[in-house]
Design a protein around this nucleic acid. Structure first.
Length: 171
DNA sequence: GTTAAGATTCCG
DNA sequence: GGAATCTTAACG
């Protein structure tokens, strides 16, 4: 493995509006065995930003479910929805500034629910540290794609203001 | 203890 | 358009 391309805490401990778009085109690396590594190109993300963002789970205060979002960036936030699907997020920003970037799509798997199922992401990844874990991390792919933006998906409950924020990023 | 709703997906 | 399916959080 080319460890020197792994993204460090410096990358994640910034505003999610900087981190989320820059995650596009990076590679998600997951270890399945002693020498079995799979890499996936990240092609779509969404930003969830702080306690004021009504679409962000942290807008209701710190709970057991979203506790990791209040920790310094670089951790993994996973949660279960609709009784069926795990969602994969990367925590960003500084401590006590709850932000996270939702991984909506990776190359070959179009949909946040499908990609976690395909990758075997579940609650055991909650709180995993992307900067030190030996089974999952993100690395630079060595190029910068052109990133498009659009409104976030599936958050009609958040109200007009937050629903229309162009915080979805994709290739 | 009970209930309502969800950062989704698949089927009709 | 609606169901599947279950964890979390907000009640009582």
């Amino acid at each position: 493995m080319n460890e020197n391309r792994r993204l460090s805490g410096e990358f994640f401990i910034r505003d999610v509006l900087c981190v989320a778009p820059e995650l596009i085109g990076k590679r998600l690396v997951i270890r399945y065995g002693n020498n079995i590594f799979h890499k996936y190109l990240i092609t779509e993300t969404e930003a969830y930003r702080g306690s004021e963002d009504k679409a962000c789970h942290a807008s209701k205060g710190r709970t057991i479910r979203n506790d990791v979002m209040f920790q310094p960036g670089g951790k993994i936030y996973v949660y279960f929805v609709y009784g069926m699907y795990w969602m994969l997020n990367f925590v960003t920003g500084e401590e006590n500034n709850p932000q996270a970037a939702l991984i909506r799509e990776i190359e070959g798997y179009d949909g946040p629910g499908k990609l976690t199922k395909a990758l075997g992401i579940d609650k055991s990844f909650y709180g995993e540290d992307l900067t030190s874990s030996n089974r999952i991390w993100v690395e630079d792919a060595g190029f910068l794609p052109s990133v498009k933006t659009g409104p976030r998906i599936g958050i009609n409950y958040a109200g007009e203001v937050w629903k229309n924020k162009p915080w979805r990023y994709y290739i």
